[in-house]
């Protein structure tokens, strides 16, 4: 198993998922380090299942982190991510303001392209719960983005 190649291929996916949980770059990076250290210790992973394994471990580590009673004080996240356009910054801000459970589901569904069933397995929640979270997250995003002047009319899927 070439862990360095796996790292290079999936590092950003792991980072983004951890970031969606923690909303903190330093904490997400720390979680990434833990995840890839666990990968090193893993005797073998079935070829083709590396990403699924990494995402599962990242979700577990992130939940462990949120259960711990230390949270760093950090600068607002949207100020630390160099997003190019104003509309991206606004969307990112609103996504990050969603509840953790909604935020993670939105990310996995819309960005990573997982099905609601796959997300359910990954997060250990029912498919119905995933669908409900997605629906509520969409509603909240639409409302908040419209109030902030973001043009959701052209987005269709909102």
């Amino acid at each position: 198993m070439d862990v360095t190649a796996i790292f290079m291929e999936y590092k950003d996916s792991v980072f983004r998922l951890a970031l969606n949980y923690t909303r903190s770059i330093p904490d997400a990076e720390d979680i990434c380090q833990t995840v890839f250290l666990k990968l090193l210790r893993q005797p073998s992973i079935k070829p083709g299942c590396e990403k699924a394994w990494l995402m599962q471990v990242t979700a577990n580590e992130s939940r462990n982190f949120l259960r711990s009673f230390w949270r760093r004080n950090v600068e607002p996240l949207e100020d630390m991510i160099p997003l190019q356009e104003t509309k991206d910054r606004e969307l990112f801000k609103q996504v990050m303001q969603l509840k953790t459970g909604y935020r993670v589901v939105v990310y996995l569904y819309y960005y990573e392209g997982y099905s609601t069933e796959e997300i359910g397995k990954l997060l250990k929640i029912s498919k119905t719960a995933v669908t409900t979270r997605l629906q509520r997250a969409r509603q909240q995003l639409k409302k908040e983005l419209e109030e902030s002047g973001y043009e959701t009319a052209n987005e269709g899927a909102f």
């Binding site: 590092k11 991510i81 991206d88 996504v95 819309y110 960005y111 969409r138 995003l141 909102f158």
Partner: peptide, 23 residues
């Protein structure tokens, strides 16, 4: 929404420093 999320999160990547540290 998928396109917006894609365009957004494509810009969110691990820092070079972190990447080097883990690598």
């Amino acid at each position: 929404m998928k396109q917006q999320m894609k365009a957004l999160f494509d810009q969110v990547t691990m820092s070079e420093e972190c990447e080097m540290r883990i690598e």
